[in-house]
Amino acid sequence: MNKFNQVRKQKNADDEQAEMFADTMDMIARERAVLRLFDGNKSLQVHSLSHAINIINQQLGHEYDNMIMNTSTEELHILHDGIKVLIHDWQHSNEIDTELVKELQNPQNFSDYQDYIKHLLRLSKL
């Protein structure tokens, strides 16, 4: 029975990592959609709430399609591994290098999540 519990625990951990990866990819797509929608402007003019929702959903759909078609398998692996590193490092932030702790707390210093994750991977020496 102990072996069964270990397998179930590992499956739950794998499912949690897959969900975190999907959530992160969703955040990347949403970030890109907003950046492209505003295109350097501080505001966006819409006719109604439904018009705004349609514009956002349309742009988000384009970003998802673009991400699927233009993100290589290697890039997806880098992002997936990076997310694992982030989770681990955030959970053990008292035990890691002070430079890495500083970078973990400042995602706003990077142009997007991909750059942030890649930088953290380099700092983690992975």
Rank of each mutant, 00 (worst) to 15 (best):
H88C: 09
A18L: 11
L44V: 03
N5Q: 13
I56W: 12
I117E: 00
D26R: 07
R36G: 03
I87A: 11
D81L: 12
Q6Y: 15
L86E: 02
R122Q: 10
D112W: 05
D97S: 07
N5G: 06
L100D: 03
I87Q: 12
S48I: 06
G61Y: 10
G40C: 03
L35D: 08
N57P: 01
I96F: 04
W90C: 10
E63Q: 03
F4H: 14
Q58H: 10
I83G: 00
N106Q: 09
K84Q: 11
R30M: 09
Q59M: 06
E103A: 07
T71V: 03
S48Y: 06
V7S: 06
H92M: 07
F38I: 01
E95S: 07
K3V: 14
Q59D: 03
N54G: 11
L104V: 01
D97Q: 08
P107Q: 06
K11P: 01
D112I: 05
D14M: 13
Q108D: 10
L86H: 01
S124T: 11
Q105S: 08
K42E: 14
K11F: 13
Q59T: 03
Q58W: 14
E16Y: 10
V7I: 10
L123P: 00
H92Y: 09
I28T: 02
L123M: 06
L123N: 02
K84I: 10
Q91T: 07
K9R: 11
F110I: 02
H62M: 09
V85S: 04
S48W: 08
L60H: 03
I53G: 02
L100K: 08
S72I: 05
K118F: 04
M25G: 01
M67A: 06
E19W: 15
E16C: 04
T73S: 14
N106Y: 07
K102A: 11
I68H: 06
L100G: 02
K118E: 04
Y113V: 02
I83P: 00
T73D: 14
N57G: 04
K102Y: 14
S124N: 13
P107T: 05
A52L: 09
V85W: 09
H80W: 15
E63G: 00
K118P: 00
M25K: 05
K11T: 11
N106S: 07
H62P: 01
N57M: 13
E63M: 02
R122I: 10
M67P: 01
L49M: 15
Y113R: 03
